[in-house]
Design a protein around this nucleic acid. Structure first.
Ligand code: ZN
Ligand code: ZN
Ligand code: ZN
Ligand code: ZN
Lengths: 159, 159
DNA sequence: CTCGTCAATGTTATAATATAACGCGTCAAG
DNA sequence: CTTGACGCGTTATATTATAACATTGACGAG
């Protein structure tokens, strides 16, 4: 008789509600499937690969297949709710997507990838962005976006 | 009766000779296979994928298989002769590998990826590297390396 | 010489990541 | 009612990368 109930932690459900609100603002829909995938990404301590996501998704959705998850990831990335970490071929939730609405084309973002614990921290460093913009301009290059992924050992792991 | 002759342009053969010299200096060998793969990468105007490389390699080496090319690429990357462009899952020759010998762990490098013509330019921008090092330090992050890939339209394409 | 060892490559199979192409149901505009 | 956009299911395939084991040839120890 009950609805499906909370699938994710209360904090994450809040973020999902916020994401739904932002979707509505833009005339798109955070469908149950999209909400579930986003919830799974946000629930992961580490970047999660498309197929790991697919495995978890299948526990609730029988018919899920690769296109299911890739399509949803495309949608979530286009809205700035999720980023891809290229070095890992894996996906992370955007921590600022719930706070700020200018992320259509994605903000200028950098990742700190800990090779020890596997965690990834997202930053938005203006100095890096400026240095990149400057270098691009000096090369007569019309920059559209930049991937910045810094690998090393995070504060927690380095002790 | 003649030897195989020049497989690549004279400029590239010169760079291959230089690479062989650098290998010898470090106690490793630029075998014919490795030399040929490096030549193919250097001959490509654009980043080249492992399987495109494999196709070209097979014209001369019958038995070539994926491990053949991936092993050689690992070798060439470890020596700094070749870089991987993560956004493209493709490989480029390092333009400075022939001039400078400190590339064992790879120099701090950035790529300008033109989404129009597909060409990739390698840069070595100290300001970007410094901004990244600074941001990492502020996060208590012990940086090992960084991937910086800037996408846009190159000077030639933007006209 | 002959054996052991190592680097390099060959060889077969498979894993991991990603997309193409088509179909089907819903829903709202016209 | 028809049409078209959207969301998703479904099947098949493409693309990228690695695991695991075999073979070859060079070279030094004995
Ligand atoms: Zn973000
Ligand atoms: Zn860590
Ligand atoms: Zn380089
Ligand atoms: Zn261009």
């Amino acid at each position: 008789m009950s609805e499906t109930g909370l699938t994710f932690s209360p904090e994450i459900e809040l973020r999902l509600d916020e994401a739904a609100r932002l979707c509505a603002e833009r005339g798109v829909t955070l469908t149950p499937l999209r909400r579930e995938v986003l919830g799974l990404v946000l629930s992961s301590e580490q970047p999660i690969g498309a197929y790991a996501l697919l495995d978890r998704l299948r526990r609730r959705r029988r018919g899920a297949a690769p296109p299911t998850v890739y399509r949803v990831l495309d949608f979530l990335r286009a809205l700035g709710f999720v980023h891809k970490v290229e070095r890992l071929n894996a996906f992370v939730g955007c921590p600022s997507a719930s706070n700020y609405v200018g992320h259509d084309q994605g903000h200028a973002v950098q990742f700190l990838i800990c090779t020890r614990c596997g965690r990834v921290t997202e930053t938005e460093d203006d100095a890096i962005a400026a240095a990149i913009a400057d270098a691009a301009e000096r090369h007569g290059f019309r920059q559209m976006r930049a991937t910045v992924e810094i690998e090393g050992i995070c504060r927690a792991c380095v002790g």
